[in-house]
Simulated assay, not measured.
Amino acid sequence: MFRRADLRLAAAGAVLLAATSLMPGWLLVLAATALAKGIVALGLLLLMRAGLVPFGQAMFYCLGGYAAGLGSLWLGIRDVLLLLLLAGLAAGAAGWVVGLLIRRYRGIFFAMLSMAFSMILYGVLLKSQDLGSSDGFSVPRPTLLGLTMTGTPALRILFAVTVLLTVLLAWGVSAYLRTAMGQIGPAIRQNEVRVSYLGYEPDRLIHREYAASGLLAGVAGALVAMLVGQVDPGMGFWMTSGEFVFIAILAGTGGIWGSLGAAFILEAVHAIAFDVAPTYWRLILGGTLLVMILRFPAGLSSLAPRRVRRA
């Protein structure tokens, strides 16, 4: 049975889909990018509830983008759904392998080790001439169920796919957080030893959630790659990971709405600041978000009604 929060999420998705035909191309790209980054923030939510802050999610975001691009160019896969599946599996598998090592660490060691893996990927891609080096390569427009997409209609279809996928993944994360395993995360943050005495293995749970967060980031990276038609090593740079962490901190750990809302706010402020002051947009962006964090130290999730937070 769907909860009210799930129905509200479906209603928000329906509103976005209804507005698709009215939105110009630049707004479609902006909104779809915000939704994709919100998907990454959903993965970070799983880890942050356990007290872990990874600074290497850009690695999976980049892997997803490159998997979509290479799947189209090298494997001949053109369908958007198959490319998203390929990107999610590639990033999820990478998260599972890296998680075998990283799941034993906590605190700053977890954060720095995850960033180290991301920077290794960035360095490899930067030196790879076959993959375009620092310039990356272009990603051709995908198809949808055999339908060729070009121009603005392609952006509208990709935006609709992004909205539907975001709603489905948000439902999945929300359902997981209501399970027994999903509720162990905050217990691990409070007292990991007691969780072990209860019969649960914190390392195994963190491993699964780390792999799941990698899968979500990979799907998001593939969406952005197909939207902008380009991938480059910058997708795996540490500043990209920092942006995701910033979204997660701004969102808080109260639920999925904060993650999606924070991603939209960050993209909107970024676009407006760059348009108003191209030279000082970073100063405007940083100052605005600093004020928001000081105003809402518990994140945007703290704005939810009290009865929702209790639930």
Rank of each mutant, 00 (worst) to 15 (best):
L158C: 05
D130W: 01
I247W: 11
I249K: 02
R194M: 10
V29H: 13
A248W: 13
G76V: 05
P202T: 03
L28K: 13
P305V: 11
G286Q: 07
L100D: 07
T20W: 01
I157D: 01
P233R: 04
V231I: 05
A222N: 03
Y280D: 08
G13A: 11
A311F: 09
V219L: 15
L42G: 10
P153E: 11
S118G: 15
I293N: 08
G252Q: 11
Y122E: 13
G299N: 07
W96C: 07
V308S: 04
A277Q: 03
R282E: 15
R141G: 10
F246N: 04
A154L: 02
G51T: 08
A225H: 07
V291R: 04
M292D: 01
M1K: 08
S301W: 12
R309C: 05
A116R: 06
Q183A: 14
G95H: 07
H270P: 00
A111E: 06
L86E: 02
A251C: 04
Y197L: 12
I184V: 15
A111S: 15
A5V: 13
S128V: 05
L81H: 06
Q57V: 01
T20L: 07
G261I: 05
I247T: 08
A32I: 00
G299H: 11
R307I: 03
I102S: 15
L63F: 07
G254K: 03
T148Y: 12
R106N: 10
V193T: 12
T279P: 00
V40E: 13
M119N: 02
M149Y: 14
L285P: 01
S118Y: 02
K127G: 01
W96Y: 15
I247L: 14
A263D: 13
S114D: 09
R208C: 12
I247M: 14
Y210E: 06
G76I: 04
G261Y: 13
C62L: 07
M48G: 03
R104T: 06
L42N: 06
G236W: 11
A41I: 09
A262R: 09
G69Y: 10
A225I: 06
L177Y: 05
G38H: 09
F55N: 06
R106M: 07
A68T: 00
Q190G: 08
G258R: 08
G151M: 02
G261W: 03
N191K: 02
P297A: 03
G38V: 08
G71Y: 06
Y122W: 14
W281Q: 08
A160Q: 12
A212R: 05
L89T: 06
C62Y: 10
P297K: 08
A304P: 01
A220R: 06
W281L: 01
G76M: 05
P305D: 13
I249R: 02
G92C: 03
L260F: 12
P278N: 12
G13F: 06
A170C: 08
V124D: 05
F137K: 00
A36S: 15
A263K: 03
A263H: 10
A160M: 14
A277S: 15
A263G: 13
G221W: 06
S174P: 00
P142Q: 13
A211Q: 08
T152P: 01
A248G: 05
E243T: 12
V173Q: 04
M181V: 04
C62Q: 11
L266Q: 12
L63Y: 03
S118H: 03
A19P: 04
G123K: 08
G71T: 02
A19G: 14
